[in-house]
Write a protein that binds this DNA or RNA. Sequence first.
DNA 1: CTAGTTTGTTAGTTACGTTAACAAACAAAA
DNA 2: TTTTGTTTGTTAACGTAACTAACAAACTAG
Lengths: 388, 388
Amino acid sequence: MASASDTGSGATLTASARAIFRLLALQGSATRPQLGQSLGLSRPTMSAAMSELERIGYVDRVGEVQGALGRKAAMYRVGTAAGHVIAVDAGSTHIRLRVSTIDCRLLHSRVYRLPSSQLMLGAEISAAVADEVAAAMAVAQADWGPLRALGIALPSRVVGPGEDTVATRQDELFSRFAPPQGAPLILENNVNCAAVAEHVYGAAQETATFAYVQVGLKIGMGLMLEGRLLRGRNGAAGEIGHLAFPLAGDARPEPGEIERYMGTEALMRRVRDGWPAGEGDAPADTSDLLARAESGSGAAQAAVTRHAEDIGAIVASCVAVVDPGIVVLGGGVGGHPRLAPRVEEVANRLSYPVEVRTSTLGSDATVLGIEKLVVDRALEGLVGELRA
Amino acid sequence: MASASDTGSGATLTASARAIFRLLALQGSATRPQLGQSLGLSRPTMSAAMSELERIGYVDRVGEVQGALGRKAAMYRVGTAAGHVIAVDAGSTHIRLRVSTIDCRLLHSRVYRLPSSQLMLGAEISAAVADEVAAAMAVAQADWGPLRALGIALPSRVVGPGEDTVATRQDELFSRFAPPQGAPLILENNVNCAAVAEHVYGAAQETATFAYVQVGLKIGMGLMLEGRLLRGRNGAAGEIGHLAFPLAGDARPEPGEIERYMGTEALMRRVRDGWPAGEGDAPADTSDLLARAESGSGAAQAAVTRHAEDIGAIVASCVAVVDPGIVVLGGGVGGHPRLAPRVEEVANRLSYPVEVRTSTLGSDATVLGIEKLVVDRALEGLVGELRA
DNA sequence: CTAGTTTGTTAGTTACGTTAACAAACAAAA
DNA sequence: TTTTGTTTGTTAACGTAACTAACAAACTAG
């Protein structure tokens, strides 16, 4: 056989054992016949592979299942030696942390509210991440096994180590925080993470290709194309705050103008400026605006509809570029179910068929997304996958 | 070993033989030691695999190469039994056809000028394609081997068989043309094909991710992301003629308005309308405009620069969505080298770092691209690749 | 208690690689 | 011209990881 060229972490396993372990980690738990049938492996092969995996502690036998007839089938799940991962959402108001096994069983979780809202990644967030990660590693139990990977979702562009990390400000994370040695560190943009979560747990479970558009304080997009996250050459894929705007025969576009125009601040300014005298005080913030639209205020409804049309135009541009077929709307403003229909209408009028859905996940979306990414990475390390 | 589950066409070959054949098809020709070293296979394995491939005619020994020292090495290339493919560019003014081996050796080629320029895919083009393909199949030589695949580049969106082929008008191709039985048929958008050609032979050879933007009569884009062409849910990825436009706080966008605004017709109308009295007659067409800009006309230069700025804004929007890092400019207008610098300047000012290059390929780009795609497909059929 | 079913193990086989050893074909040095 | 060392290709023996066949174990249903 061709030399297996182990990548350090994973012990020497046969290809079938690796496939079994990977499937088990993705499925959570399964019986031996189930695994064998899914992978098309014979019972002798299963026998050898499972005893090997069990011997090194990568899988545990956790019970038996009785079918309609015949002997009981052994039930397995991922074992202690497979270890655990840490996923952190380093948000602007909260740090969310999850410690999980490779098969996404939650071992520990924590939410820490930052003393003050941070507009940009900086020392404040860095220090909080350092504290939370240290605390999580301190409470680690023996049966968590080794730490296999650490992932952090950041509210900034993220590029690989060889690239221009100064422009992205991602290095600010390390001003107070030193990542633990021995486990790979994964950084990912928080909107991308939320897109992953929508794919795994949320509104886009069945489709390998879709776009997640977040509209709130700022605007951003995560692109899942054929099951893979698109990051781009500068980690800027989905940075739709930089779409050319204004774009017209006479106007000259300005950089980042869309972000300012679509953000909550400018939105509320437009709402206040156009608020009719007869409808009382203008709404105080976006949730007030949305609530008043819900409860029947004509002016609020008009403002929300107008914002939906603006979002629709932006979505149309995204559709014209990548044609995702499905767009999931999220974020403080975009996640409101009132918006989706009008966004869909406008986007379809302007470009190509898209289904616009509203996000089904709450504020945990980003941690769940980075958790999934870090688990995937840990799994790749364990089974030593050398992809093409 | 796991059952190989042959996909009909490819005979039963070992994995190593398949890998050797694939490498040889991609490289064109190579010596046995070269192939063995590239794939990390031992000499006995090479011996067995090559004799097997030679026996079924998939490879031919075409000579020997003497190294600095030692025995001569045998030189191989793809054999007759591997067959050939037909690639057709069904353009609006010309039908271009190439018959090639799996390793892209040209066997036959032809260019047919349509009696009248066709704005849309229709019976005229369909009939011409039927004629040209029939003629090519009639002159087939015995040593071309079997036809493995047929590919046609179309000036329309293309979607898979299960999708809405009415909206794309792609079925117009079959109004007068019946594809030959027994070989898979591949349809692809012509701009996507040109992008593939830029990747394989042109200005984007070293990068797996880039965008090809074609500006001429119309405007379109082909996206190569991590080595794969992005088609989108409706075959509309890259249809940037449908970017939202005009896009501004007060304006309401109209569908397809960018296509009209950026197309040569509207461009020349703007040039004529703004042409200063002192500079003589306004340019007759875009090549006249570009020539006059080259030869120093201030008004022509201003018009070209203005157009480059418009293209730059559109490129900026594309960069904000997919961040390709490199954009290749092509097409009747976009392919002029005078445009790229200003496009790059504007795009970089508005969004994220992009390098803008000018296409290096001529009018053969589209055929060469579809040839590459059809050869790849044929190869997959032969080696029976079941990708994940 | 027996018959039929499902699970898991043992034994033997097959496919496809490997290394080791050798023969053939060549350039350069003696 | 012969010798020496190098590279190529083949043959023989071997190893790994899958497979099938056969059997033992554990269970339900009649």
